[in-house]
């Protein structure tokens, strides 16, 4: 019976978890924007919502073609947890305490270091991937994502300089790069590359 239940669980589409993750993020954002929850509660819920990434990573692991990809997924998941946790702690401390400059420098590292973990995970993947085609595909996707970040960043920079758009914090480069990577990999999948 347990096996049957496990089998059903395994056969759930990964898209279900992706949709659930984004619904949860949207709901938390909505609650925070409407002041239904305070900042710390929002970040705790955000950290909990990151747990929805576990089944996605597990399903990806089950269909992974290489050990390097399994290790990459594990490292990115671990870094994502660290990011949500670090961001929550940093924002809570910033909002509730009068911090000295060195302390602000230190709390800025809390969400930053886990994002370095994501970059490190990608570097390790490219170094450890033994399948040259999978490595080639990932490099191409990463380059396209980098191109998207540079193009958007430059364009946005000039729009901002001419006061057409609001200021955007520089840490957005990593989420934009990650979205570019995901979209490119999806595109590669659709066209069978």
């Amino acid at each position: 019976m347990t096996g049957a239940a496990g089998g059903r669980h395994q056969h759930r589409s990964p898209y279900l978890w992706v949709v659930l993750y984004f619904v949860a993020i949207g709901a938390i954002g909505g609650l925070k924007l409407t002041d239904a929850i305070n900042g710390p509660t929002g970040f705790i819920l955000l950290a909990l919502a990151t747990g929805l990434l576990i089944p996605i990573a597990r399903q990806r692991t089950a269909t992974c073609s290489s050990k390097a990809m399994i290790d990459y997924n594990r490292r990115v998941l671990f870094s994502s947890f660290g990011y949500a946790l670090g961001l929550g702690i940093a924002v809570t401390l910033w909002n509730n305490y009068e911090l000295s400059r060195p302390a602000v420098f230190a709390i800025s590292l809390l969400p930053t270091l886990p994002t370095f973990g994501v970059i490190w995970a990608m570097a390790r993947y490219l170094a450890e991937e033994q399948d040259e085609y999978l490595r080639h595909r990932t490099i191409m996707a990463a380059l396209v994502a980098l191109g998207i970040v540079l193009a958007l960043g430059i364009f946005w920079g000039f729009l901002e300089m001419f006061e057409l758009v609001p200021h955007v914090w520089a840490w957005w480069v990593l989420p934009v790069w990650a979205i570019g990577l995901a979209v490119t990999q999806l595109w590669q999948k659709v066209r069978g590359a």
Binding site: S65, S66, Q130, E132, Y133, L134, G192, A193
Partner: peptide, 22 residues
């Protein structure tokens, strides 16, 4: 070959040219 099925498919359909060692 010790590679992924995707690799074989990509080479077979001409979307990817293998390295000399492969």
């Amino acid at each position: 070959l010790g590679v992924s099925r995707q690799s074989v498919n990509a080479i077979e359909t001409g979307r990817y040219d293998p390295s000399l060692p492969l």
